Simulated assay, not measured.
Amino acid sequence: MSPNERRSEELAAFDRLLTIMDELREKCPWDRKQTLESLRHLTIEETYELSDAILDQDLDEVKKELGDLLLHMVFYAKIASETKAFDIADVLNAICEKLIRRHPHIYPDETGATISADTEDQVKQNWEQLKLKEGNKSVLAGVPKSLPALVKAMRIQEKARGAGFDWEEKSQVWEKVSEEIMEFRELISPDSGQPVDQQAAEAEFGDVLFSLVNYARFVDLNPETALERTNRKFIRRFSYLETHARAEGKALHQMSLAEMDEYWERAKKEEKDIS
Rank of each mutant, 00 (worst) to 15 (best):
Q125V: 02
Q125M: 13
N126R: 10
N126H: 12
W127Y: 14
W127H: 10
E128R: 07
E128L: 08
Q129N: 08
Q129S: 05
Q129R: 13
L130A: 11
K131A: 15
L132Y: 06
L132I: 14
K133P: 00
K133E: 14
K133R: 13
E134Q: 09
E134A: 14
N136R: 13
K137S: 06
K137F: 10
S138P: 02
S138Q: 06
V139C: 04
V139T: 10
L140P: 03
A141V: 03
G142W: 03
P144K: 01
P144G: 01
P144Q: 07
K145W: 06
S146W: 15
S146T: 11
L147S: 06
P148I: 06
P148G: 01
P148H: 06
P148K: 04
A149R: 11
A149D: 15
V151Y: 10
K152M: 05
A153G: 02
A153L: 11
A153I: 02
A153F: 01
A153D: 05
M154C: 11
M154W: 10
R155C: 08
I156P: 02
I156W: 05
Q157T: 03
Q157S: 05
Q157L: 12
E158S: 09
K159I: 05
K159R: 13
A160D: 05
A160L: 15
A160R: 15
R161H: 14
G162C: 07
G162I: 01
G162D: 03
A163L: 07
A163S: 12
G164K: 03
G164Q: 00
G164I: 07
F165M: 11
D166G: 07
D166Q: 09
D166M: 13
W167M: 12
W167L: 14
E168L: 13
E169K: 14
E169Q: 15
E169N: 14
K170Y: 08
K170F: 05
K170C: 12
S171K: 08
S171P: 03
S171I: 12
S171L: 11
Q172S: 08
E175S: 08
E175P: 05
K176W: 02
K176H: 08
S178N: 13
S178A: 12
S178W: 02
E179K: 07
E180A: 05
E180Q: 12
I181S: 03
I181F: 07
M182I: 11
M182A: 11
M182F: 09
M182Q: 15
E183G: 03
E183D: 10
F184S: 05
F184I: 05
F184E: 00
R185I: 11
E186F: 08
E186N: 13
E186T: 09
E186D: 15
I188K: 04
S189N: 13
P190A: 04
S192N: 08
S192H: 01
G193P: 00
G193C: 03
Q194R: 11
Q194V: 10
P195F: 07
V196K: 09
D197Y: 04
Q198S: 10
Q198K: 10
Q199M: 12
Q199D: 15
A200Y: 01
A200P: 03
A200G: 06
A200F: 04
A201N: 05
A201D: 00
A201K: 02
E202C: 05
E204L: 00
E204C: 01
E204W: 01
E204S: 04
G206W: 01
D207F: 03
D207Y: 01
D207G: 00
D207A: 02
V208W: 00
